[in-house]
């Protein structure tokens, strides 16, 4: 029964992949080796598509795999399997947190956790910044410092930051506008 198998494989992925979309990758390789539902080539294709479409990467990957394996129901079932462990675990954690919210030690731990959380978001931001503002591959090829930077992107980024601070519209507005500008400038 392909649907049950899809659900079960993605349920396991959701249960054991800790730390975001890319953490699901090793599981996808494992599923591939075990079931042959898709090829290794499909996985790299899938990563490229996931990165160039909106939405959480893990969800994109589950939809893609489920759909290519068993059509629209396959996509829905794979996503269902992937998110079910999250829903159960978070509901449990939320209840535990409520019970111990006033506990001194939980508050102390949260004081440290929040600082770590800001750091991890900064790391993620730096990783995107590297892709957005630098040409790492070109620099490795030529070794010239002038090839490392992407001046158009840097100027655009600085201007956008100033405009965002001044105008403060909904973030979605800037995302759409930036896509249009990216196409117009052939960035």
């Amino acid at each position: 029964m392909i649907y049950f198998q899809l659900f079960w494989e993605f349920f396991k992925t959701g249960l054991f992949a800790i730390g975001g979309g890319l953490a699901t990758l090793p599981f996808l390789y494992e599923i591939q080796a075990k079931t042959g539902w898709y090829t290794i080539n499909d996985i790299s294709n899938l990563v490229a598509v996931s990165e160039s479409t909106p939405g959480p990467m893990g969800i994109n990957m589950a939809t893609y795999t489920g759909f290519t394996t068993a059509g629209i129901p396959g996509g829905l079932i794979a996503v269902g399997g992937l998110v079910l462990p999250s829903i159960i675990i978070i509901i449990l954690v939320s209840n535990i947190l409520d019970k111990f919210k006033t506990n001194k030690y939980v508050q102390y731990a949260m004081y440290g956790l929040r600082a770590a959380s800001v750091a991890l978001i900064t790391v993620a931001c730096l990783r995107v910044a590297q892709l957005a503002f630098l040409h790492m591959d070109l620099f490795q090829e030529t070794g010239l410092v002038k090839d490392l930077f992407n001046p158009v992107a840097i100027i655009f980024g600085v201007l956008l930051f100033i405009i965002y601070k001044k105008t403060d519209k909904h973030p979605i507005f800037y995302i759409i506008a930036s896509a249009v500008i990216g196409i117009a400038l052939a960035m």
């Binding site: 995107v128 957005a132 655009f156 980024g157 990216g182």
Partner: peptide, 12 residues
């Protein structure tokens, strides 16, 4: 190209 623009925006 659209993604290159969006990436800059996401950083900002």
């Amino acid at each position: 190209h659209a993604l290159a623009g969006v990436r800059v925006c996401v950083c900002v």
